[in-house]
Computed example of a mutant assay.
Amino acid sequence: MTTIENKYLKVSIRPQGAELTSVYNKTDNTEHLWQADEAIWPWHAPNLFPLVGGTMNNELHVDGVAYPATRHGFTRTSTFQLVEASDKHAKFSLPYSEKTLAIYPYKFELQIIYTLIDNALRVCYKVVNQDEHTIYFSVGGHPAFNVPFYAGEKYEDYYLEFEQEEELLTHTISPDGNLSGDTEAVNLDGKKLRLTKELFANDALVFKNIKSREIAIRSDKHDKFLTVQYPHFKHMGIWAKYGADFLCIEPWLGYSDTEGIITDIKQKEAIQHVDHGHVFEAEFFIITSY
């Protein structure tokens, strides 16, 4: 386990998936990150690569070849190496291997870099192309935050506040975990979306294009907040396990296949790419009150 810390935050990251396991707010002694209850949802904040979401028939198609694929890719179960560390900074690396080439036929290095900047945690993804050709991928975050923040509060005391007023359409999810091809309106009260357990009765809210570049978790009962700021991410998933006391705010570049449509990775909606000899970079921030 690697820990970075400043006067505001203490953050822990494990080698598996280079996954955050704790975002502890030292100013009011609050653990903001879901603590991975095995009986409910066994993750904290998985990193998603080279897929976001699911694929048809659990297969990734590349140049006419079908490779076995798991939901959200293989990164969250892979062991990263810690390659740099200081009090406020940690850099993890996952290079390609014979194991990854068997399921994702590109030569890459995925770097995940965590940096504390006052009351904010910067999460940076770098995809280094080590192949002779352009490589294609999706990438995203899946952090789960404790809601409510404090004992004695209710989930329904909380709401999401979007940066901008939005006309939101969620792309509904099929029983197999792909996009169904249908949409439903999600109504905001100004910039606010009230949190209820029923909000996620039919799985995640998936927004393919969203104007806001930050979303805050706020309460009617106090002025404490947690904000996810995602300047480089165009797509968003918002999810909680039905009935659980957490909320995921998931900045994405990519999303699931649409049910019944098999597409080569190069033609997938929202797919990202990085050319030979180049590096792709995207970042988001977890910002806490203090």
Results as ranks from 00 to 15, higher is better:
H32T: 07
E19Q: 10
I249H: 01
L205R: 03
F162M: 08
A102K: 14
K91E: 11
T100M: 07
L94Q: 12
G177N: 05
S219Q: 08
G190C: 03
P50I: 06
K192T: 08
N58F: 02
A66I: 07
T79N: 13
L82Q: 11
L101S: 02
A240D: 05
T21E: 14
T115I: 04
E250H: 00
M236G: 01
P68Q: 09
D87P: 05
Y150H: 15
N187Q: 12
V123C: 02
K197L: 02
K197W: 01
I40M: 05
S219T: 14
W34K: 12
Y155V: 13
H61N: 11
P46A: 01
L168A: 07
T183Q: 13
I173Y: 02
I261S: 12
Y106R: 00
Y159L: 10
T170F: 06
E214S: 13
S138P: 04
H235E: 13
I262W: 00
D245C: 08
E59W: 06
W41D: 09
I271P: 06
F80L: 07
D131R: 09
Y8I: 05
L188G: 09
P15M: 00
N47Y: 01
Y96A: 01
Q81S: 14
H32N: 11
D275Y: 05
V279K: 14
I173N: 02
V206N: 10
R71V: 12
F137V: 10
V123P: 01
T170A: 02
